[in-house]
């Protein structure tokens, strides 16, 4: 018996439910039906296959209760709900959906295990969830979109699959302008109804680029920001170690402005100008 499931929250939850019924079944996952067929033909599988999650399903709320119990399990205010936890873990570049399904089943109806970090596997998946959350939060913190032709655009490059959640966040923050987040060849468009397309949609970078008139940089805003940023430092409180931790090296690759801020964190604000030599 083989349980084949889609690599998404519904697929994982359905696989967990089925694994309870067929504990000896093998697990296979795929992004879509095409990939699944390719996998099967490559492996030459001819056993009985239970394909799950490839067709739209109703609500998975009942499944969550069945697999992880009814008790609320969050241990800190920042912990996501179990469904969000699974969603975030699946976005991690190293996440193994098969291992995740087996881990969820091993929880035996106790969602606390997801957050407790008691076992090594629980610790690892909690860390995956935190890695993805952190990657997304870093984008929210340090990416600096450009307003071009009435569209707020930004290119991101994250190791994890977080461009869509970042786009949703940016669109919620700027409800009055369309928002585009591009990662590689894929782009996400938020508040699309303002330009006559679907409100939140996945599209291509080339389509989004065609909406942009010119890739102009708003230097005036960046100069103003530098003035404001420098004005906020209290010189005799300089804390190199803390500042470097808070404004990490990785933030510098997210935007030009963040790169400049990181440079100031490293080097401090120069109090010496050319005027002093004249």
């Amino acid at each position: 018996m083989i349980i084949a499931f889609k690599r998404d929250v519904d697929g994982v939850l359905l696989a967990c439910s089925s694994l309870g019924k067929y504990p000896n079944a093998d697990l296979v996952f795929a992004k879509n039906m095409g990939e699944l067929k390719k996998k099967f033909s490559f492996l030459g599988i001819e056993e009985e296959v239970l394909a799950l999650g490839f067709k739209p399903v109703d609500s998975t709320a009942g499944l969550v209760k069945e697999i992880l119990g009814k008790r609320p399990a969050k241990m800190s205010p920042r912990d996501p709900k179990p469904v969000q936890y699974v969603d975030l873990v699946l976005r991690h570049r190293d996440a193994n959906p098969v291992e995740l399904v087996r881990f969820l089943v091993s929880c035996q109806g106790s969602a606390e295990v997801l957050y407790s970090g008691k076992s090594i596997l629980a610790r690892r998946y909690y860390r995956y969830m935190r890695d993805v959350t952190r990657a997304w939060q870093r984008l929210c913190m340090f990416s600096r979109p450009d307003l071009s032709n009435g569209i707020l655009m930004v290119e991101v490059d994250s190791p994890h699959d977080v461009a869509d959640i970042f786009c949703r966040w940016l669109a919620k923050k700027n409800r009055d302008v369309p928002v585009a987040v591009m990662q590689g060849t894929v782009a996400w468009l938020g508040n699309g109804e303002l330009i006559g397309v679907e409100n939140f949609t996945k599209t291509t970078t080339s389509f989004v680029s065609s909406l942009r008139v010119s890739a102009q940089q708003d230097d005036e805003v960046e100069k103003l920001w530098d003035v404001f940023y420098n004005s906020q430092m209290i010189q005799n409180r300089r804390n190199h170690k803390l500042a470097k931790k808070m404004q990490p090296k990785s933030s510098a690759i997210l935007s030009k402005m963040a790169k400049k801020d990181r440079y100031v964190v490293e080097r401090g604000i120069s109090s010496c100008t050319l005027d002093r030599f004249v």
């Binding site: 003035v227 004005s231 430092m233 190199h240 801020d261």
Partner: peptide, 27 residues
């Protein structure tokens, strides 16, 4: 803008959600 922003650097405030940058003093 610089003069007036400097006037608030000792004021503490937090929005509790997203920090967008950190000054060299770590705030």
């Amino acid at each position: 803008m610089r003069i007036l922003a400097e006037g608030t650097k000792y004021d503490s405030c937090n929005q509790s959600a997203v920090c967008h940058s950190f000054t060299p003093d770590g705030r």
